[in-house]
Design a protein around this nucleic acid. Structure first.
Length: 893
RNA sequence: GCCCGCUUGGCUCAGUGGUAGAGCACUCGCUUCACACGCGAGGGGUCAAUGGUUCGAAUCCAUUAGCGGGCACCA
């Protein structure tokens, strides 16, 4: 007899296993000895080196680990590759802040020293999240851990850059870009947030040069007028058609600017005339290009006015300049009106500073051809397959269709420095290394571009750079393309689409077959969790309070829909873990004699054994199917109900008498072995979700552990991680056993119901009389001992006729059986009549519904015959039960 | 502005054409030799509204309302 504590303590199991799993190499694909094993690969979405674990990570990691553990147990050569992203801006900010405390700026250190400093920071403070990933139980292969700034990955970045440049897909150019005045770098469109902002719309008058009146423009940013080089109107706007081509005198600066016609202008908005500032507005920039307008930069990289803005403005902050411009317009009598106005403003995703659109020379990636690769792959090969398909496939393809060039340079020091050099006469040399650049240029008088690449440029290569690309490594051949990408929806554009494009471009194949987009864990009010709101729940706290396994079940059942966080939910899964623990406790307490039974289910089996085997195998079938379809929520439900309802509530109870028999016997040993075998298989099914608990218990079971391993892991030190994932054995699926068992369950439930309704004390033994048709008689007779035990009967009779005593509580079962519990002296006839009438009423309502449906000619003719038959059978059953109830009622009167 | 999703018992959520489900909460009864993080028995929903398709709709279609999200160059 094996004794374990009454309550499951997750902490002990959590401490016991992870280090051992890792040390023994169970996470690495090399553990698989089968050369023909199918391959399953996931690359982790690399968390930022500055990051720490939040609920979103825990959610994704749980799902990735579930799939990885499942596939590993199913015999796949499995790789889940971990790593981190160098997170250019965040990390640089972090280190800059640290330097500031020492009274230093990065410029004090210089670029090289600064970079060294960042690496030191990474060593000391970075990668907290890696420890936390271990805590989650994630079975990632640490031997293949990668970092986007690793030399190999940096080489991949340079290679990709050079190839794209050579193909004309990367270029350097002067264009309008999003500039963050705080972070002092350019940003891509995706790193900019659009926020609604309450502000004002200013109506400004621009007089004609010839003094004949003025034209009024409306703007939210009056300070940019200092850089205006035109006013635009819609060519079809009759109000202005005669003014096109005329010249205005720009107030304050006294510059002559033309009125141009452009389709971009919406006649209905404002006055229908737009001031054009090509240097500071993306649309104006486009118009400027169309009309060959001068770009006058009046705002600098610190969001201050430049010399070009004029002596009164130079050096002023952009908002101060706005006030001054308005003052001057007012003084000139040119401010027509100011109205309240709500509009969208761009902010830096990271520091929330208002973005300043500036023209600047940057590196860009042309997206047209890459986009076509991705769209063709989706349309012709259906890759990637989005789960759920709606809405993500459309979101993804719509975005691709409207894709604009990607600004890839950043004015940072932390990141992959752009592999471009300039000769003294300004020629651009793009090369994989300085050596190669010198060769190409024929001189060593070269200066490398100061800028680094967008962090997402290296992330875009992640599925193959981590496997060794551009080298044709064994890993790359084996593990690319990966099987599935699990991610949150907010990086479908930033990351997923870009991986698709680079994967197709460089590898000629999609980087992943499927993309599973998880739901979001919201706070209890339905709000997104965020640091600024302070409404986040720390997964580590939840692990601490309820255990990792319970948390994982909670997160897995979130699936693909947004779900409000509910601690109650975790609590219920904690209870489930405890239930498993105690079921195992019972099995272990009654395990003597079981270990010698090698084939517990050989030979003829009693009903409850045939039943549980059928249930177990159907569950295995269901679980496998649901995992293949990423139906995480469904799998959790399937496992929960199989284990709790079928195994605990019924199988253990049905086995109890035999299993707990005081004297040793072959029957007892076999029953014990059967119980343990079902438990053991259940633990294997549960393992991907609850790795710690299942390993802890599995190791304790008196079974031949080594024989339970999947053949691909033969010879490994036994662990449930490498045990074969149960598959459905169709020979053990047994529908008649299930329906027979169901009859027993219904019988027991009805008797318990009567006991409860008639207020029969739990300890009180009853007499139980059953009248049934021959088929059910056989079933009940075979299970008589169990029925007696579960209904707490002292005496049980089963026969074919219904000579029941009048003073009894009675019930009619479906399928042709009646029960009676004689209650001489205890029964209140009126009350019993009431009870039976209620029952009859229920049956009649159901019967009426069926009759109505069957009375509908259209239904009978058009519905499938099977369905019609089914309804008829149910109606017949109801009719028979009604007759039986009538007889009982008659007997009572 | 455009696109999309959600609306199911008190709460959090499953279910996607054929008899409305779970967990928690609630009511009643239980120290029944695995488990009170438990056991047994119950109550509770016209599946947002309206219209349509269908023999049959919570499920498909349309419209409306409320909530949420994404995209967007009306200055």
């Amino acid at each position: 007899m094996i004794e374990i504590p009454k309550t499951y303590d997750p902490k002990e199991a959590e401490q016991n296993h992870y280090a051992r799993w890792e040390e023994r190499g169970y996470f690495a694909p090399e553990i698989n000895q089968d050369p023909d094993a199918p391959v399953f690969t996931i690359v982790i979405p690399p968390p930022n080196v500055t990051g720490s674990l939040h609920m979103g990570h825990a959610l994704q990691h749980t799902m990735m680990d579930v799939l990885t553990r499942y596939k590993r147990m199913a015999g796949f050569r499995t790789l889940w590759l971990p790593g981190m992203d160098h997170a250019g801006i965040s990390t640089q900010l972090m280190v800059t802040r640290q330097l500031k405390k020492e009274g230093l700026s990065r410029h004090d250190l210089g670029r090289q020293k600064f970079e060294e400093r960042v690496w030191l920071w990474k060593q000391e403070y970075g990668g907290q999240i890696l420890k936390q990933i271990r805590r989650e139980g994630a079975s990632v292969d640490w031997s293949r851990e990668r970092f986007t700034m690793d030399e190999n990955l940096s080489r991949a970045v340079r290679e990709a850059f050079v190839r794209l440049y050579d193909d004309g897909m990367i270029y350097r150019g002067n264009r309008i870009v999003n500039w963050c005045p705080h972070d002092q770098t350019v940003l891509s469109d995706l790193e900019v947030l659009r926020e609604a902002q309450k502000g004002k719309l200013y109506y400004l008058r621009y007089p004609f040069k010839n003094g004949a009146g003025s034209i009024t423009v409306a703007t939210t940013r009056p300070e940019t007028m200092l850089g205006d080089t035109a006013v635009a109107v819609n060519p079809k706007d009759e109000r202005y058609s005669e003014m096109i081509g005329q010249v205005l005198m720009l107030p304050i600066v006294n510059r002559e600017i033309p009125i141009v016609a452009d389709d971009f202008v919406e006649s209905e908005f404002g006055t229908g005339a737009v001031k054009v500032t090509p240097a500071h507005d993306p649309n104006d920039y486009e118009m400027g290009v169309r009309h060959n307008l001068e770009q006058i930069a009046v705002i600098d990289q610190f969001a201050r006015m430049t010399e070009a803005a004029g002596a009164d403005f130079a050096g002023l902050d952009r908002y101060k300049a706005r006030e001054l411009v308005i003052e001057k317009f007012e003084a000139l009598g040119l401010l027509e009106q100011v109205v309240d106005y709500e509009f969208a403003i761009s902010k830096c995703e990271r520091c929330k500073t208002v973005i300043e659109p500036l023209t600047s020379t940057q590196w860009f990636c042309r997206m047209d051809k890459l986009r076509d690769l991705a769209l063709t792959s989706l349309r012709e090969d259906g890759k990637p397959r989005f789960v759920p398909q709606v809405p993500y496939e459309k979101v993804y393809s719509d975005w691709l269709e409207n894709l604009r060039d990607w600004t890839i340079s950043r004015q940072l020091w932390w990141g992959h420095q752009i592999p471009a050099w300039y000769t003294s006469d300004g020629e651009i040399i793009v090369a994989r290394s300085f050596e190669e650049a010198k060769q190409k240029a024929g001189t060593d008088q070269l200066t490398q571009d100061e800028d680094v690449l967008d962090t997402w440029f290296s992330s875009a290569l992640w599925p193959f750079s981590t496997l060794g690309w551009p080298e044709e490594t064994e890993d790359l051949r084996t593990f690319y393309p990966t099987s599935v990408l699990i991610t949150a929806r907010d990086i479908i554009f930033l990351w997923v689409s870009r991986m698709m494009m680079t994967g197709l471009k460089f590898m000629g194949r999609e980087p992943f077959a499927d993309v599973y987009v998880t739901g979001t864990v919201l706070d209890k009010h339905g709000q997104r969790m965020s640091k600024t709101k302070g409404n986040g729940i720390d997964p580590l706290d939840v692990f601490e309070k309820y255990g990792v396994d319970a948390t994982r079940l909670t997160l897995a059942s979130v699936g693909a829909t947004d779900t409000r966080w509910s601690e109650r939910q975790v609590e219920s899964y904690r209870n489930f873990a405890n239930k498993i623990w105690n079921a195992a406790r019972f099995c272990l307490m009654n395990s003597d004699g079981a270990e010698s039974i090698s084939q517990p289910f050989a030979g003829d089996l009693p009903l409850h054994d045939r039943w549980i085997l059928s249930r177990l195998n159907k569950t295995a079938r269901e679980v496998n199917a649901q995992l293949e379809q990423y139906e995480f929520h469904g799998v959790v439900q399937t496992l929960y109900h199989f284990f709790w309802d079928d195994f605990c509530d019924w199988y253990i109870e049905l086995s109890k008498a035999t299993v707990t028999a005081e004297t040793e016997s072959p029957e007892r040993g076999i029953a014990r072995a059967r119980l343990i075998s079902v438990l053991e298989q259940s633990l294997r099914l549960l393992h991907p979700f609850m790795p710690y608990l299942t390993e802890e218990l599995w190791q304790k079971l008196p079974v031949e552990h080594a024989q339970l391993l999947h053949s691909a892991y033969a010879g490994a030190e036994p662990t449930i991680m490498l045990a074969a994932f149960p598959q459905c054995d169709n020979a053990l699926v047994n529908d008649s056993a299930e329906s027979e068992m169901q009859a027993v369950i219904d019988l027991v439930s009805r008797v318990r119901n009567i006991r409860s309704e008639m207020n029969i004390k739990p300890g009180e033994r009853i007499q139980l009389m059953i009248a049934a048709n021959p088929g059910l008689q056989t079933v009940f007779t075979a299970s008589a001992d169990q029925i007696t035990r579960l209904t707490r009967a002292s005496h049980l009779s089963i026969d074919g006729n219904a000579a029941m005593p009048k003073a009894s509580a009675r019930a009619v079962l479906s399928g042709g059986a009646e029960v009676a519990i004689p209650l001489e002296g205890l029964i209140d006839f009126a009350q019993e009549r009431e009870r039976l009438l209620k029952e009859k009423d229920k049956l009649q309502k159901e019967g009426a519904k069926l009759e109505a449906q069957l009375g509908n000619q259209d239904f009978v003719e058009r519905a499938p015959a099977e369905k019609v038959e089914d309804l008829r059978a149910r109606l017949t059953d109801i009719a028979q039960r009604t007759v039986a109830l009538d007889q009982m009622l008659e007997a009572l009167s």
